[in-house]
Simulated scan of single mutants.
Amino acid sequence: MLGASLKGKSVIVTGASKGIGKGIARVFVEHGAKVLVVGRDLASAEATAKEFVAQGGTASAFSADVSQLADMEKMAKAAAERHGGIDVLCANAGIFPQVTIENMSPEVWDEVQDVNLKGTFLSVKACIPYLKKSSAGRIVITSSITGPITGFPGWTHYGATKAGQLGFMRTACMELAKFGITVNAVLPGNILSDGLKAMGEEYMKGMAAAVPLGKLGEVEDIGYAALFLASREAGYITGQTIIVDGGQILPESPDALAQM
C-alpha cells in the first residue's frame, strides 16, 4: 500500500500551518509519519499540530523563518530530538505577493527570493546531516507551474523563485545521491488554498474554467504527490518533477477547452 513505508518516519513540512503545507502535513500524518509542523507564527503551527494530534496522529509545532540559517538549524535539531532523526524534508514554505514589475520594489523582490528560493536552500542545508543518517532520505520541494512552465502578470518574482528551485534541485540531487537521498519537486497548478481564496471568487471561477478536469485542486492532491515521492516505491526517482494541475497547462487555447 502506497505510503505504508512512511509509518514512523520523521517528516518536516515548512509552511505547514495552512494551505498546501497543511495539506501535505495532513497526508503524512494520516499515513503514520511523525510530522514537525513548521511556520513563522507559532500559534498557527501549534493549532495545526493539535488538530492532527486530536485526530490520532503524531505531530508537533515549531516556529521558524526559513530565510534564516540559524532558524533552520534549530528546526532540524528539534525534529531529530523529538522524532528520532529526519527522514523527509518537504520544503514547502513560500509567499506570492502580487505586484507588477513596474510597481515592484527591490525590497519586495528580495523578500520573495529570500523565503521561496533561499529558504529552500537553507532548509535543505540544515537537514542534510540528519538525512544522511536515514536509510531513505527524501527531499520534496513545492515548486509551481508558474515560472517553470507558465506565467501570470504580477508574479515575476514568484515565478523566478519557482524556476530557480528546479535548477537547485537538479544539482542538489546529484550531490546527495551518494548518500541515498533523493530530491524531487511537485508543481501545483491552481489549488484551493487560503492564498487562492484571497484572490477572490471571480478569479477562482476563471481558473477552474481553464482546467480540463473542470475544478480546482485540493491541498491533499499535492500531499499525495509528495507522499509518493517520499515513499519507498519512489526510491529510484530523483531530480524529477510531478505536475499536479488537473491538465491546466495542456490546452493550446480557450477554444481547445470549448471542444470538450
Results as ranks from 00 to 15, higher is better:
R26M: 15
A64K: 09
G21E: 01
G21P: 06
S60C: 15
V35F: 02
R40Q: 02
L69G: 06
K34D: 12
T58E: 14
S60K: 15
G32Q: 07
F28K: 01
K50V: 13
S63K: 11
T58C: 13
Q55F: 13
A33D: 03
A54Y: 05
F28M: 11
A54C: 09
T58D: 14
F52Y: 13
K18R: 15
A16F: 02
V66T: 10
A33N: 05
K18E: 15
S44C: 10
V38W: 00
V37P: 00
A64E: 03
F52P: 09
V27T: 08
S17F: 01
S60Q: 15
L36H: 03
E51C: 12
V27L: 03
A43N: 12
V37F: 04
Q55K: 15
A49E: 06
G32N: 06
A25M: 10
A16I: 06
A64V: 05
A61Y: 10
A61P: 12
V37L: 01
G19E: 01
A49N: 07
H31N: 15
Q55S: 15
T48W: 07
K18A: 14
L42C: 02
A49L: 07
A64S: 09
G19D: 01
K22T: 11
A61W: 05
A43W: 07
V53F: 06
A59C: 12
D65R: 13
L36C: 08
L36R: 03
